[in-house]
Design a protein around this nucleic acid. Sequence first.
RNA 1: GGAACCAUCGCCAAGUUGGUAAGGCCGCAGCCUGCAAAGCUGCUAUUCGCCGGUUCGAGUCCGGCUGGUUCCUCCA
Length: 466
Amino acid sequence: MVIFDSVTKTKRPFEPIKEGEASIYVCGPTVYDDAHLGHARSSLAFDLLARTLRALGYKVTMAKNFTDVDDKIIKKVEATGKSMQEITTYYIDRYLDEMAQLGVQRADIEPKATESLDAIEQMIQTLIDKDFAYVVSNGDVYFDTSKDPHYGEISHKVHDDDENQSRVAHNSEKRNPKDFALWKACKGEDDICFDAPFASGRPGWHIECSAMIEKYFDGNGAYSIDIHGGGADLLFPHHENEAAQSRCATGHELAKYWMHNGFVQIDGEKMSKSLGNSFFLKDALKVYDGEILRYYLNSVHYRNDFNFNEEDLLAAKKRLDKLYRLKKRLLPGKASAVNPAFKKALLDAMSDDLNISVALSVIDEMVAASNEKLDENPKDKALKKESLANLAFIDTLLGFGGKEPYSYFQIGVDETLKEKIEALIAKRTEAKKAKDFATADAIRDELTQIGIAIMDTPEGTVWERA
RNA sequence: GGAACCAUCGCCAAGUUGGUAAGGCCGCAGCCUGCAAAGCUGCUAUUCGCCGGUUCGAGUCCGGCUGGUUCCUCCA
């Protein structure tokens, strides 16, 4: 396995800190709103990472956090009158449900900031004791970036360019412009606060990840975890700050590899609330099946920016359709063993920093080859069994193609419509038998009108939702 | 203002150590079909934003330019 490490900006062989194991921590969402396509992409990218490492034989422990205390959540509390917990559990449930629809496997550990306050306070206290952090008059605790000689090495941001930072309003008691809050002191009666030795208040955003990693992972003395992941926008300042805190608190580096996924754009424009083109996952899921979205969003390498548009999504769907059409030809039947060359080609592709494009081309070629052989010999049992096994392997490694093909092609068709379709097909078959092709074609047109495509096969007429 | 990344067929998109352009969508021709659809076969970039340089040889390395994106502020 080779991984592109964002810090060294090179592909590096994956050599885990513990033999045969892989520890991954991915920055999850702040749960104050519905997940958008960007969350989906990040989730999908690291799902692919975990699946690939598992397929390679590593014992993977994946953690993905929920930031469930934060300024934005508090604003939502003020705006809605609901409790913070009501809001966060609602969005966490929705997030998990939507990601499940995309076929994202659950993380092994899903820590929440509010459930990790002990670890957070402990790390802040350590940083204060070691003089890497300081408390200002109102009780806020800041990390002193000037005390960490390695600060800036993660994101390669130049130190002390404070001339350009002057636009950013900051607490005048900060010692350095880039110092950041570890703990935000309670602002008043209505504020959401937790007790802590330094001051009643709540954790800053960056500290929670560092603290939770220390809480859940042992590390090997040189690193706490193998891989730290997240969106490209998190590299600075979030991950820089995480790395600094952890380094200063524990005396060793946080992660051996850093991975960052690219952005999702909508029709070439940055997706953002201010532009009004924010694309919520829930809206996409109303129109497209989760599996198709998964295939589409994963069809571009995770580090590239992703330009979401309907035309490309349809092209992706057609590609997936072909896989399921092969599966239709294969069933009913049992799977035997995966073709070794196919398995190797797929794993080799994914082992190269998750080269999904090559992996998908390997699949397309396998599908075409299987179809060709089936055209030559439709009764080739051994081939059918092997192809079925190949599809099962694809499902395990990449998370698509696992459905029963008829259910895939008939998504969104209810029972009454189904009966109507079956009846029309029966009528058409009669007409065809009687050589009444005019009637047969009229029935086919009628089906086309309601969005149903039919195909005559040696085993009879089958239909799909177009 | 500072920094980084990207630029390959009509569209999407691979292309680690430089060695002579994967795959998909679309399109065209053929096989199959009553006709279609599906499936299969063949064809579709002498060329990789532009200009220089290094080299026997560059999409791949170096410099410059142009275009796009991102980060520097909460953000996947």
